[in-house]
Simulated assay, not measured.
Amino acid sequence: MKADQRGARSEIVVDAELVNWMLVRDIDPFDHAKVRVRLAGQILKDRLGRFADRSWIITSPVRSRRHLIAAGAVVRTHGSTYRLLRRSDREDLELD
């Protein structure tokens, strides 16, 4: 939840859910010293209508703190907010 201008709490609007997700680490193409963390997974309930259910996506870089990325959490990327459901049994990806 986040506070509005009056200090009252408002509900976080989730844009979609991710299932069978894993972390994807890669190098920022504009700053080779910076490692980005993104998520790959199957999208569900995309309220913005961008993707069909169960489509595989890779998100833009995650803005949420790394230790908060876990099943059941809500995470933010550059332009979307995702609820993370079941994590994949596959290993996380390292892209060079």
Rank of each mutant, 00 (worst) to 15 (best):
R90N: 15
D4C: 05
R90C: 13
R38S: 11
E91H: 12
L23A: 11
F51R: 15
L39W: 02
H78E: 13
V74N: 04
L23T: 07
V24F: 03
D96H: 06
V75E: 01
D89V: 14
M22F: 05
A3V: 05
V74D: 02
K2C: 09
R65Q: 14
E17H: 08
R87H: 10
V37E: 02
G79L: 13
I12H: 09
L68K: 14
R87L: 09
T81I: 14
V75I: 14
K2R: 14
A52E: 11
L48E: 12
K45H: 12
R38P: 01
L93K: 12
V37L: 12
L39Q: 02
L23D: 13
D31K: 08
S88W: 01
R36W: 09
R50M: 04
E91R: 09
R90F: 15
P29V: 13
H67L: 07
V62Q: 02
Q42W: 06
N20V: 03
G7T: 00
L48G: 12
L48F: 12
R25Y: 05
P29Q: 10
K34T: 13
M22I: 15
R65D: 15
R66Q: 11
A33H: 13
W21N: 00
P61G: 06
D31G: 04
A52R: 10
V24T: 05
G41M: 02
V13Q: 14
L93H: 10
Q42F: 03
D15W: 02
G41A: 10
T81W: 04
A3Y: 06
L48Y: 06
F51T: 04
I12L: 10
L44T: 11
V35Y: 13
G41S: 09
D53N: 14
H78R: 15
R86P: 00
K2W: 09
R36V: 04
V35H: 10
L44H: 05
Y82M: 05
V14K: 00
V62P: 00
D46G: 02
N20T: 08
A33D: 13
L84A: 00
R63A: 10
I43S: 00
F30I: 06
L44N: 04
K2L: 08
K34F: 10
A40I: 06
L23P: 01
G72W: 03
S60P: 08
A16C: 10
K34W: 11
K34M: 14
G79K: 12
R76M: 04
G72D: 04
K45M: 07
I58A: 08
R63K: 12
A52I: 08
V19H: 00
F51C: 04
I27W: 04
V75H: 00
T77N: 12
A70P: 05
Q42S: 13
A8V: 07
A3I: 03
L95Y: 13
E11I: 15
R87K: 15
E91K: 11
G79D: 15
A40N: 06
I12N: 15
V37K: 02
D53K: 07
V14Y: 00
R66L: 13
R63C: 12
L85V: 04
R83H: 09
I43K: 00
L23H: 07
R36Q: 08
D15F: 03
Q5M: 11
S64Y: 01
D26P: 02
R63E: 08
P61W: 02
A71R: 05
F30S: 15
H78S: 10
R86D: 08
A8L: 06
M22L: 15
S55I: 11
T59L: 03
A71W: 01
R50E: 06
R76G: 06
